[in-house]
C-alpha cells in the first residue's frame, strides 16, 4: 500500500501541491488534470525525484525516502519527457538501465528480449535510437519502466506518440499488469484512463478534487448533460449560454453535447455523462497553468 499523507510541495513562494492525501492499492489509477496542475510534481515525488516540503509518502507504512534504494527497487517510472541516449540501441540502453536497477546480466538479458518483443521493437533491438520515431522511443521508455517487474509502475503521459493500435495494446498491457501491482497513469488524455482506471484522481488548484471510480465520478454530473441540434447561425449564441462539451456536424445542423445545470428545454435529450464531460466541466474556468516548477 502506497500512502501520501498531507503532502505539500513548495517551489520558493509557489505552492505546487497542497495537503495531498492519497492511498494506492493494487490496480490502475488515472491521475487526471490539465497540464501544469501539479500532476508531474506529485508523480516526481512518488518517484523520489522531488521531496515533499511537508507531509510524507509511505510504502507499507515506511517512509519512501528512508527506504531509499529498497523503495526504488520496487519502482518502474516513465517520465513525461523521456530522455534517452540517441547513439545507443534499445538493447544497449536497456542493459544499462538494468544495471542501474541492480539486475544481473543473467536476469537482464531474457527480460530485455521479452520486453522488446512486448513493445514490438525486437526487430530494431540493435539499431541506434536516433533514427527512431516518437512512438518507438516511447515504447523503449515503457520497456525500461517495466524492466525490474516493478510493484509500483508510474507512467507520466505514457501514450504520447503512440498510434491508436499501440495505445489499445498498451492499455490492455496495463490492465493485465495491474492485477498484482500499483499502476499510476498520469495523463490529460481522458480516453487513456476511462477504459482501464479502477479509480481516477483529479487535481485542481493544487489539491485533490476527486478520487473515485469512473462511474461514481460521472454521476456527479448526471442529469446535466444533454444533446441537441442547433443551426449554424445560432451556434455562437448557444455556446455563450451553455458549456459545450463536444460538437458534431450532422447534415446542415450541429449536434452539440453540452452541460446545463437547470431545467431541460424542449428538444434537448438527456445523455449519460462520461469522464471527458466531467473533465471539461471541472476545468471549464481554468486556463492551462504554466508550470511553476523551477527550471533545472
Amino acid at each position: 500500500m502506497l500512502n501520501v499523507h498531507q503532502v505539500s510541495k513548495n517551489f520558493g513562494s509557489f505552492q505546487a501541491l497542497r495537503s495531498i492525501d492519497l492511498e494506492f492499492a493494487n490496480g490502475v489509477y488515472g491521475l487526471l488534470a490539465p497540464n501544469g496542475a501539479g500532476k508531474t510534481t506529485l508523480i516526481k515525488m512518488l518517484a523520489t525525484l522531488l521531496f515533499p516540503s511537508e507531509g510524507e509518502i509511505t510504502y507499507n507504512g515506511e517512509n519512501i525516502t528512508a527506504m531509499d534504494a529498497r523503495y526504488r527497487n520496487l519502482l518502474g517510472y516513465l517520465p513525461q519527457q523521456f530522455g534517452y541516449y540517441k547513439n545507443d540501441s534499445p538493447q544497449k540502453y536497456l542493459t544499462y538501465i538494468a544495471a542501474l536497477k541492480g539486475m544481473s546480466q543473467a536476469e537482464a538479458s531474457p527480460r530485455i528480449a521479452e520486453l522488446l518483443k512486448l513493445v514490438a521493437l525486437e526487430d530494431v533491438a540493435g539499431k541506434k535510437m536516433k533514427k527512431f520515431s516518437g512512438g518507438m522511443i516511447q515504447r523503449v521508455g515503457i520497456a525500461q519502466a517495466m524492466l525490474n517487474d516493478p510493484k509500483i509502475l508510474i507512467l507520466d503521459e505514457p501514450t504520447a506518440g503512440l498510434d491508436p493500435k499501440e495505445r489499445v495494446r498498451f492499455r490492455n498491457l496495463l490492465t493485465s499488469l495491474a492485477r498484482d501491482r500499483i499502476v499510476i497513469l498520469s495523463t490529460h488524455i481522458v480516453s487513456d484512463v476511462e477504459p482501464i482506471a479502477g479509480e481516477v484522481i483529479m487535481i485542481k488548484d493544487q489539491r485533490i478534487l476527486y478520487k473515485d471510480t469512473v462511474d461514481h465520478l460521472c454521476r456527479r454530473i448526471e442529469g446535466r448533460v444533454f444533446e441537441t441540434y442547433v443551426e449554424h447561425d445560432e451556434a455562437e449564441t448557444f455556446r455563450s449560454r451553455y458549456l459545450s462539451l463536444s460538437e458534431k456536424q450532422e447534415s446542415s445542423r450541429l449536434k452539440i453535447r453540452f452541460l446545463h445545470e437547470g431545467e431541460a428545454m424542449p428538444g434537448w435529450t438527456p445523455v449519460m455523462p462520461n469522464l471527458e464531460d466531467l473533465f471539461i466541466y471541472t476545468y471549464r474556468d481554468g486556463q492551462e497553468q504554466e508550470d511553476k516548477e523551477p527550471a533545472k
Binding site: A47, T48, L49, R72, L78, F82, Y85, I97, L100, K101
Partner: peptide, 20 residues
C-alpha cells in the same frame, strides 16, 4: 550528462538512484 540528455528522471529513479 543526464541533465543534458534529459535522462536524469529515469536514471535517478532507479535502484542505484542518486548513488550514480
Amino acid at each position: 550528462y543526464e541533465f543534458e540528455q534529459r535522462t536524469a528522471a529515469v536514471v535517478y529513479a532507479t535502484r542505484r538512484g542518486r548513488r550514480t
